[in-house]
Write a protein that binds this DNA or RNA. Structure first.
Lengths: 222, 222
DNA sequence: CGCCCACTTGGCACGATGTGCCATATTCAC
DNA sequence: GTGAATATGGCACATCGTGCCAAGTGGGCG
């Protein structure tokens, strides 16, 4: 643990110290490289290949990531990260909306690309999701990301609603599932990320269905 | 493809041909061995160790399973398998209950141990779930099993309700999530498998919450 | 400016993973 | 009983992931 290498002043809140920024940049560069290679050549890509293409030694690669597939996790996690942070943020305000609405709003915002950063992550996510049918290990990463977010979401919702633990668990799982399905469905189609069939609209619909009740369950049969 | 090695007569419907039964038994034996080792010694267990303990060569082990963690998949999948088969079965009958109720009923039955087989699988599942916090690869298998079941469930529900594809997708994901959470919650506690806090009761409650609407979402805040 | 210290990087060796290939043994069909 | 099909085992090999140590680099301080 680097014990927070305090930089000079406080005029720039928590400046991450050049070295830190380099590491972050390196990590992102590796992630981009890995995503590109996985997307275009499938599971066959070798860890060494990713490392060299990204311009680092194999040993360094494994200092940044536990497995070669883990390298794409930062890109897949961007949306989810912002979702949870946004949720925790807005619900902490005094004029916070009710939980259901807050979940939906935060999800919508997380999947509405604002800066180039978010837009880029969404593009990579889409490419990776399309490569997943042929690569179980990639799917595993995707599910791991959502497993982690489900746990975090649980914490936020517990603090927020103080409901029964099982209900909190179910709510977190439901919201998380809506998020996942929305992104998967969007990636499978060919709609723009900011269009009316973009992930933001899909997740809003899914979130309503999974928290307020599923439509169409008793269709033409029965 | 063995092109269905027809046995002698039809008095025993589709007899799986001795060799087939042996293979199935071997696979199950490997699965049990792997589960036991993972449960008691964590991620450190080696594939060779599993193979030897189960009484097969390492090479044979990898003919039955793609990775060493995959070896436990058959045990984790038993409950889910029966769930989906039961669902597809009962909903095919003329006096089938409405979809929501059918989902809940099938889930409840799948998690109510009847024969020794089901009871054994539940015990293994519980042990494995308790080992999962310390073993990402095991978690990955668990999530893969549920990923697969989500796809199958989608097919069943599509044929059953004929609803909008996205709604079908959401329903499958929701039901699947209820199943997963119920088993996880049960495994984390110390209730008997057939008691009032067993997985069957948990899944029923979860299934209602995720298909009809979440309770407690707007608790003490707002 | 120069020194030192902490930390990142790279190289190497090594056990473990997962697969292709071939030889052997067992089972099924006739 | 004989031959075809297939399950199993052994071996080699590329890749994975990690421990260990050496070299390079940046930041703090006199």
């Amino acid at each position: 643990m680097p014990t927070a290498p305090r930089t000079t002043a406080a005029h720039t809140p928590a400046r991450p110290s050049l070295t830190e920024r380099r590491k972050a940049e390196t990590q992102l560069e590796i992630a981009r490289t890995a995503a590109a290679l996985f997307a275009e050549r499938g599971p066959g890509v070798t860890a060494d290949e990713i490392a060299r293409t990204a311009g680092v030694a194999l040993r360094t690669f494994y200092r940044y990531f536990r497995t070669k597939e883990d390298a794409v996790a930062p890109l897949l996690a961007v949306g989810v990260r912002q979702w949870i942070d946004d949720l925790a943020d807005t619900t902490a305000r005094p004029d916070a909306p009710p939980t259901r609405a807050a979940l939906e709003q935060a999800a919508r915002r997380a999947l509405t690309p604002t800066d180039g950063r978010a837009e880029e992550a969404l593009r990579w996510t889409r490419g990776l999701l399309r490569a997943m049918p042929g690569d179980p290990a990639l799917r595993a990463v995707w599910h791991r990301v959502h497993h982690d977010s489900e746990e975090e979401l649980q914490l936020v919702l517990a603090r927020l609603t103080g409901a029964d633990p099982l209900d909190v668990r179910l709510a977190a799982a439901a919201a998380n599932t809506a998020m996942r399905v929305a992104v998967e469905e969007w990636a499978a189609g060919d709609a723009r990320a900011d269009g009316p069939h973009g992930p933001a609209e899909l997740v809003a619909r899914g979130m309503r269905a999974l928290t307020a009740g599923l439509p169409g369950l008793d269709g033409r049969h029965n």
